[in-house]
């Protein structure tokens, strides 16, 4: 019976041992200080007990060296924790370069995952062993938080923004996936499982069905919504060419520069006038309401997939202005 009570979560990602080592370090330090004070209090309470209530203690008022000592030593100890914890944190929030991209949207009360190759799944996430995976997600309604305890990762899903988590699974199996930010009635039902599979099995699972790949769906939307009529790949259209733009910098009409990333592309589809690229008129209508979050994600995936076209015309001009 006792073995069945878990006291420690499974380690199933490359980040988990890092986080756990830090945890034990902090546990050791805080445990030491807690014991130190607790033992002293108990010893003093017993040793200096006065049953009469009629005596007074020694006339001690303080000691500057002691005060300095117990301010400065804890400060340096806490700085050691701070530095280590910050290093681990940057590992958690900085994904490596080559990751398997998965998109997700949270809404009350389910998680929908969209694989690039076309499979989508609800409250289940299949990932391959040993490969860095990055899940980019947003919320369609209120705040949620995507949390996989076995991987030690978590991030809030915020409507109107993209968040992401990344992990490299190190152990096959089935793990809990939770919503960690309170979201209403069935908050505790917004849970699911992550399945870590051997790469071969994962490939088999991937090919086991699913519709259009995200890029293909994005291309479809790009045609249907009429994006293609302005955003010509050679840069001669009324809107800027999008080919090869992802991950570059763009100069805006107000002279600022912006990184062309998921967030900027999403914003430009839904509220195009907010940060207009220099050299273009504010002609683009908003697509808010015309395309859902997954559609936006597919469009972004399509734009990412466009190879850089040979620079001509307007595109060169924009680039030149940026310098």
């Amino acid at each position: 019976m006792l073995e069945s009570i878990p006291l420690f979560p499974e380690q199933a990602s490359s980040l988990a041992p890092e986080v756990d080592n830090l945890y034990f370090f902090v546990l050791a330090i805080t445990g030491f200080f807690a014991l130190l004070v607790a033992v002293l209090v108990v010893i003093f309470a017993i040793k200096y007990r006065d049953r009469t209530g009629n005596r007074v203690g020694a006339p001690i008022t303080g000691s500057i060296p002691l005060e300095l000592g117990w301010s400065i030593i804890p400060f340096f100890v806490s700085m050691a924790i701070f530095v280590w914890a910050t290093v681990v944190f940057f590992h958690i929030v900085r994904p490596p370069d080559q990751t398997l991209e998965i998109y997700s949207t949270g809404k009350r009360w389910m998680w929908r995952f969209q694989h690039i190759d076309g499979q989508s799944e609800i409250n289940e996430l299949h990932v391959p062993l040993g490969r860095p995976v990055k899940v980019t997600f947003t919320s369609e309604d209120v705040l949620h938080s995507l949390y996989v305890p076995a991987f030690r990762v978590k991030a809030d899903a915020i409507p109107g923004r993209y968040s992401s988590i990344w992990f490299t699974p190190t152990k096959t199996g089935q793990y809990h996936l939770f919503c960690a930010e309170y979201c209403g009635t069935k908050h505790s039902g917004m849970i699911g499982s992550v399945y870590v599979m051997d790469p071969d099995e994962y490939q088999a699972w991937l090919s086991g069905g699913g519709g259009l790949s995200m890029t293909a769906r994005g291309e479809q939307l790009f045609q249907q919504l009429g994006c293609v009529s302005c955003h010509l790949n050679d840069g001669s259209g009324r809107g800027p060419s999008l080919a090869g733009k992802f991950g570059t910098q763009e100069t805006l009409a107000n002279g600022e520069t912006v990184n062309v990333d998921d967030t900027y592309l999403r914003e430009s589809i839904l509220t195009p006038q907010l940060r207009l690229v220099a050299g273009y008129q504010p002609l683009m209508p908003t697509f808010q309401g015309l395309v859902n979050e997954e559609g936006v994600m597919s469009l972004i995936e399509y734009i990412k997939s466009l190879p850089a076209a040979p620079a001509t015309g307007a595109a060169t001009q924009t680039q030149a202005q940026g310098r």
């Binding site: 203690g57 000691s63 804890p74 700085m79 701070f82």
Partner: peptide, 28 residues
């Protein structure tokens, strides 16, 4: 995070001072 560690120090100082107050007291 840095500032949160910093705010822990005055609380620690209080705890240490309370403990030291017990030293050589006449604890009723």
């Amino acid at each position: 995070s840095f500032l949160s560690f910093a705010v822990a120090i005055p609380s620690a100082v209080k705890t240490f001072n309370w403990t030291a107050t017990l030293y050589q007291g006449a604890i009723w």
